[in-house]
Computed example of a mutant assay.
Amino acid sequence: MITPLANILCFGAAHFDRTVQCTEQYVPAASNPVRTLHRKPGGVGRNIAVHLRLLGNNVAMLGAVGDDGDGEHVIAALSQIGIDTRRITKFKDKHTAGYTAVLDETGELALGMMDAEVYDFLSVDLLADQLANLQAWPWWLIDANLPVETIAWLAENKGPSKFCAATVSPSKAARFAPVLDKIDLLITNRAEAKVLTGIDIKEIDQAKTAIAQLRDKGVTDAVITLGAQGVVSSHQDDCAFWQPLPTMVRDVNGAGDAFYSGFLSCFAKPGATMDDAMCQGLAMASLTAETQGTTVWDVTQEAVNLRAQHAYKKPL
């Protein structure tokens, strides 16, 4: 039996990701023969929630699915590992969201298609009657798949809950721009940070400048991930650069979401420091990059702690 260590409510995407690859030369605007490489649950909110739960946290998911088999599967898979799914709404006559990636014959992305219409129904009207229940969760992880109006309403009505923002993509990161002064924790990558700051981040010093701007806009704690280059963090007057951990890379897909899970799993606990959380986030990202797929199903806190010992911080 897993003992709950923190209480985190995750708002956002839970759907299916499908990847197919052309078996012959890709021809635009034509029928192309393909083979399916994988089809698996995905979505930023879902990915973060799953690792949070596997790390022993008390987790709930608030999202939207269609009244179809995919929706049933998404809910069942989350429930099976102990995530509270009572706040996932099933919308009649709607399809569960899904992302389809079409790779050409060389393995490069030829076309990406995202059907996310069902998330537009996560409206203020849907959530307003639940506000007291939502505020009972001390930590909110909110991904940018929610409508702009809903994000703004949640920011204004978070009460004592901590508002943690996951930017999802450059196109959706802008949904957090009007509420930066309400965000307690922002973890973003360089492309998404550019949308919020206007700074083209290529070097560590540029990341530091972008973080300073985010802090000036009201973000309490900010982290910018730079891929293989490392991570820059800011907490109070402390700004630091963190090197990536030694990793035998197999699949980097999902490593960013895993970083958020490891960080928040630690940060949400009483007495945790920013440095503790950074070490845990880097460890989860490293372990995930060594795993085929987006989830380390056999992750243990012991394994995370062991990997986290190799984290290195350089004050900026």
Rank of each mutant, 00 (worst) to 15 (best):
Val44Asn: 12
Gly56Cys: 06
Gly42Pro: 12
Leu52Ser: 00
Met61Glu: 07
Asp70Pro: 02
Gly66Val: 00
Leu54Asn: 05
Asp68Thr: 03
Gly63Tyr: 05
Gly66Ser: 00
Ala64Gly: 02
Gly63Asp: 06
Val59Arg: 09
Ala49Lys: 06
Gly66Pro: 01
Met61Trp: 01
Leu52Gln: 05
Asp70Leu: 14
Ile48Ala: 05
Arg53Ser: 14
Gly42Arg: 13
Arg46Phe: 10
Val44Thr: 15
Asp70Glu: 14
Asn47Met: 04
Val44Leu: 10
Gly56Pro: 02
Gly56Leu: 03
Leu55Met: 13
Asn47Gln: 03
Asn58Thr: 12
Ile48Lys: 05
Val44Met: 10
Leu62Val: 12
Met61Asp: 06
Asp70Gln: 14
Arg46Leu: 15
Arg46Ala: 15
Leu55Val: 08
Ala60Glu: 10
Arg46Asp: 12
Ile48Met: 06
Gly45Ser: 09
Met61Cys: 07
Gly42Lys: 10
Asn47His: 07
Gly63Gln: 07
Asn58Ile: 04
Val44Pro: 12
Arg46Gln: 14
Gly66His: 11
Asp67Leu: 04
Pro41Ala: 11
Leu62Lys: 04
Gly43Tyr: 09
Asp70Tyr: 13
Gly42Leu: 09
Ala60Pro: 11
Val50Glu: 15
Ala64His: 03
Leu52Met: 01
Asn57Ile: 01
Asn57Asp: 13
Asn58Arg: 14
Gly45Cys: 08
Asp68Leu: 03
Gly63Leu: 07
Leu62Cys: 15
Ala64Tyr: 09
Leu55Ala: 07
Val59Pro: 07
Arg53Ile: 05
Asp70His: 13
Gly45Val: 12
Asn57Arg: 02
Val59Thr: 11
Arg53Val: 05
Gly43Trp: 00
Ile48Trp: 03
Arg53Phe: 12
Gly42Cys: 13
Pro41Glu: 10
Arg46Gly: 15
Ala49Asn: 09
Gly56Tyr: 03
Gly69Ile: 02
Asp70Ile: 11
Asn58Pro: 10
Val65His: 05
Val50Thr: 13
Val50His: 01
Gly45Ile: 08
Asp70Thr: 10
Val65Pro: 03
Val65Ser: 02
